[in-house]
Design a protein around this nucleic acid. Structure first.
Length: 299
DNA sequence: GGGTTAACCTGCGGGC
DNA sequence: TGCCCGCAGGTTAACC
């Protein structure tokens, strides 16, 4: 499932393959894929055709491609617009030859004026999507697409403030895993890397956030940063063909997971079987010895 | 207003 | 063989 490292792999691919190119055509194959673009498919295409993509940006699990001002408009007149993308759980952004046969779950395709590889949004479960949005200023002063101004900085951003995160956790009345999955507190962390970071920090997922010490929060952030850096170096995590980079290739970090998906396998630190528990309509994996359940637990 | 839950969606695997 | 059910999970609307 695409979390920050997987999305960053895709961003790097897009930066290489689409920056500087001008959109020539847009085909929307499934309206749900652009449901966040509230003015519909025709307007979506109209706002993209003829626009040059400037670069590829990311915050947490969101990607966006800033667009140069339309031909005839005065450059730098406003904050501009961007093509925003979220991969959801099964979304892929692929660079494909225009002649390549359509993928089974092809939802949107963008062709370019140079006639080279086109950009395809493929999404089996249609939880992801694309939209053209105005750029706005987030609470921390960062320029991002309008609908994601509530998304917090991710741990790979220099502006992520560890001390502010510690205080935010102390204001909350919830469990640490819920907090790690809350994209308005810390972005980019999903179910897999939350479990991996907590395993590295030796903390149980139901630990009440207001009881965490500075040292423990520091261990969690170290865990998040380390697991994401390792996953990025491995090209991301994939369990099947659902997550791939822009060339359709899978990462191999799933071989390095210590907790996630390893029910009944021995913990690599202490040998205790990893446990799986239902949590928020999904699963949590942890070592019951290294990550003992707190006396007071918050789910 | 903060915390929590359910719904959205498709494919796959296990059980019967 | 084929049907049904549970599971995978990021985000958000709706609820408490």
């Amino acid at each position: 499932m695409p979390e920050l490292p997987e999305v960053e792999v895709v961003r790097r691919g897009l930066e290489k393959w689409v920056a500087g190119r001008t959109v020539a055509g847009v085909r929307v194959g499934h309206p749900r894929a652009i449901r966040r673009h509230q003015t519909g498919a025709e307007d979506f295409a109209g706002q993209l055709v003829g626009r040059r993509i400037e670069s590829a940006c990311r915050r947490g699990k969101y990607l966006w491609l800033p667009l140069a001002a339309p031909a005839g408009a005065e450059d730098g007149a406003g904050p501009g617009e961007a093509l925003l993308a979220h991969l959801g759980m099964s979304g892929q952004l692929l660079m494909q030859s225009p002649q390549a046969p359509a993928e089974l779950h092809l939802r949107v395709r963008l062709s370019f004026a140079d006639g080279g590889r086109e950009l395809r949004f493929v999404d089996q479960r249609t939880f992801g999507g694309l939209a053209v949005e105005a750029i706005a200023t987030a609470h921390d002063g960062t320029e991002v697409p309008r609908s994601i101004t509530h998304i917090a900085a991710d741990v790979l951003e220099p502006r992520f403030d560890d001390e502010r995160f510690f205080h935010a956790l102390h204001r909350r009345r919830t469990g640490i895993k819920r907090a790690l999955l809350d994209q308005s507190l810390i972005s980019g962390v999903g179910n897999i890397y939350a479990d991996e970071a907590l395993w590295r920090a030796r903390l149980h997922y139901a630990r009440p956030t207001e009881t965490l010490t500075r040292r423990e929060v520091s261990r969690i952030l170290d865990g998040v940063r380390a697991v994401m850096a390792d996953a990025l170096a491995a090209g991301g995590t994939s369990f099947d063909s659902l997550y791939v980079n822009v060339n359709g290739e899978s990462g191999y970090f799933d071989r390095s997971l210590e907790a996630y998906g390893r029910t009944d396998e021995p913990c690599s630190r202490c040998g205790t079987p990893i446990r799986r528990e239902a949590f928020m309509n999904r699963s949590s994996y942890y070592c019951p010895r290294c990550q003992p359940r707190p006396r007071r637990a918050r789910w």
